[in-house]
């Protein structure tokens, strides 16, 4: 009898251990937690340090790799021009994101609601991702002109696939229990979609959106390279042609900062909207 009690106790301890170790890990994490701003500053400083030392050690000429300071000077000196072009690219990215999200959601819903359509749409979907954006860019220029529209469509096209697949997967993999529960409550097909399937797919959709936010700038800038009269991509191309490598780097810096900012803002918003996500 005593032996059994001891066994039970050890079982109890075994059961508790994961929770306890988790708790320990959590407090560890909290203690080691560094403010994200501090982290950003540290990593920026490290990168600038490496950059500067490469320039110094290898004695890079400024038309191959300009020193960080020269780029910052250029950044301040030309801030008006840079800002104007940043605004254009930012708009292209944001509108491209919205268009791509809308299209992805729409297609995913079509595939969910009308099963046979899926087999027809799938090749189209894959083609949209398999053809390099550079290959269709000239065609889009031809059809939509040199303005913003062609870049928006480019950005939308490049995020279309991840958004659609994530959204479709999210909609398709609703936990069966939720569906059963709603069905026993007498939910119709539309009510299931509206109250169960759509909200349940949000965490999966969110990971699609996170991917989309990072790759959408590729579409926009690639579009600007192929043909445009404004935007950071256009500016970089011009600067490169005129051997203004520091200005090109300035544009590059802004573009990365823009992407990082966009990602973190999106991440913050998504976490706020979907607090139950893992």
């Amino acid at each position: 009898m005593r032996v059994r009690v001891v066994l039970d106790m050890s079982e109890l301890i075994n059961n508790l251990t994961p929770a306890q170790s988790n708790a320990v890990k959590n407090t560890d994490k909290q203690q080691r937690h560094i403010s994200p701003w501090l982290r950003a500053i540290i990593s920026t400083l490290v990168i600038i340090g490496i950059w500067q030392s490469i320039v110094d050690i290898f004695a890079m000429p400024s038309f191959i790799l300009p020193a960080p300071l020269a780029v910052f000077e250029r950044l301040i000196e030309r801030h008006e021009v840079l800002f104007k072009h940043t605004l254009v690219t930012a708009q292209e990215i944001v509108f491209g994101l919205l268009l791509g999200l809308f299209m992805g959601l729409f297609f995913a819903l079509q595939m969910l609601l009308f099963k046979p359509i899926k087999h027809w749409l799938l090749p189209l979907l894959i083609a949209s991702q398999a053809i390099p954006v550079f290959a269709i860019a000239p065609v889009l220029m031809l059809w939509l002109g040199y303005g913003m529209a062609s870049k928006i469509v480019m950005a939308a096209l490049i995020i279309f696939f991840p958004v659609t697949t994530c959204c479709y997967d999210g909609l398709r993999n609703t936990p069966t229990g939720y569906l059963d529960l709603a069905k026993t409550m007498g939910a119709t097909k539309w009510q299931l979609l509206r109250h169960i399937q759509l909200p349940a797919s949000l965490p999966t959709l969110a990971s699609g959106i996170r991917v989309a936010v990072v790759i959408a700038p590729i579409g926009a800038v690639a579009g600007e390279w192929v043909g445009s009269s404004a935007g950071l991509g256009y500016l970089m191309l011009q600067a490169n042609a005129r051997m203004m490598i520091d200005e090109m780097f300035a544009a590059l810096l802004i573009l990365s900062a823009l992407s990082i900012l966009l990602y973190f803002v999106t991440d913050k918003v998504l976490k706020k909207l979907i607090p139950w996500e893992g």
């Binding site: 529960l181 709603a182 409550m185 007498g186 939910a187 119709t188 109250h195």
Partner: peptide, 9 residues
């Protein structure tokens, strides 16, 4: 939740 879903009830 059940009040969201249709049907006679």
């Amino acid at each position: 939740l059940s009040s969201k879903f249709g049907g006679k009830m």
